[in-house]
Write a protein that binds this DNA or RNA. Structure first.
Lengths: 212, 212
DNA sequence: CCTACCGATCGGTAGG
DNA sequence: CCTACCGATCGGTAGG
């Protein structure tokens, strides 16, 4: 309480804690990350973490809040990309994959959270995801009326499957090189996966590939 | 040592331990599962677990071995489905999704392991997955020569993206109901996801939907 | 297969 | 933000 004297120091410390906690929770999970590990990564003592965040659980909550906040930052851009005319499809997909590729720990964190606390995450995320899901689903239905999109597409299920491909191909990217034969570079594999994801999403949606 | 007196009892105990350990590791992860939790679920004391498996790590290893063993059981059927003529595509997909739907903990365990120990899992799984990946990739290339399959499909990346959809849509199924609006039943959502997965996989592969 | 016990580490508190 | 400390629980051992 009463930390108004030098807020910049506090903010810096809080952010450094959250950055390292995000990385560690993503890598080792909530149970696999101890306060000591976080403190060591930040460069302070375990007890000092409790000065900034009272409990480990509150650090975890703040990490998830930060992830949602960053998603809210890009959401307007995605909505914009979805609304404007040129290359809507590619740009929406690029915005979404870019969000997770910019920091793969976001994908790892979301997948872990989906396994550890499914309902809590669904509740937390659905309000942030709802407008986006509705928008895309609505656009798909319009396309179906215009016969530009296959009529047997299940809009909601389609979007969610594409999201799952995006999430998991980034979150599990550490495993893919071993499966593609050792000969290939890591980035090369990630590139191939990203390209194939776009191709699958596109080819399974549009009745005519060149229609956008 | 020297447990030949009544192997049936030991086998039963080992299996009961592995069954509960599989469930708990899948639900709470390796770090989130204690020996006490496993012992309590099985109905014995913590120390007794160490009589059957020396360490927690060896229990974990045996759980993964069991998963691989069960995969090896269905692999022949998958290869058979892929080789025979009628409805090859649907049957291969059905065999794979069926494997994970029969016990969603298999999918959860694999996703967790991909996050916790990516390289170890890749090494462990690739030998079991390699013949299958090569088979499917080869079939795709044949189809491409016959112009039945889109020429811009990246066979390996395609198969892996479909595997990721299968895995993640089962492993993260606890989260989906909340995203589909509360009105729908759990099984209904799982059904829609499974159907859309097959549709996406099919529509993004074949140049003409009716060709098989 | 159980009981009793080990040192180490956990998340968190108290006081400065 | 640090030091010192708390009870609880961890994985594992010893002996029966």
């Amino acid at each position: 309480m009463m930390r108004a004297a030098d807020p910049q120091v506090d903010l810096g410390a809080r952010d450094r804690i959250l950055r390292e906690a995000t990385r560690l929770f993503a890598r080792h999970g909530y149970e696999g990350t101890s306060l000591r590990m976080i403190a060591e990564a930040v460069g302070m003592q375990k007890g000092s973490l409790v000065y900034h965040f009272e409990t480990k659980e509150k650090i975890h909550g703040a990490v998830l809040d930060g992830l949602v906040a960053r998603w809210k930052d890009v959401l307007p851009q995605i909505v914009l990309a979805a609304a404007s005319g040129e290359n809507r499809f590619e740009r929406v997909i690029a915005e979404c994959t870019g969000f997770f590729l910019a920091d793969p720990n976001r994908a790892r964190l979301l997948v872990r959270e989906s396994l550890d606390h499914p309902e809590e995450l669904a509740a937390r995320v659905s309000e942030q995801l709802a407008p986006w899901l509705d928008l895309v689903a609505g656009t798909i239905r319009e396309g179906q009326k215009r016969k530009e999109i296959y009529r047997d597409v299940d809009p909601l299920a389609y979007v969610w499957q594409v999201v799952l491909m995006t999430l998991s191909s980034v979150a599990l990217s550490d495993m893919t090189p071993g499966l593609f034969g050792g000969g290939e570079k890591r980035d090369g594999v990630a590139d191939r996966m990203a390209r194939e994801l776009v191709r699958i999403a596109r080819a399974s949606l549009f009745t005519h590939p060149t229609v956008r």
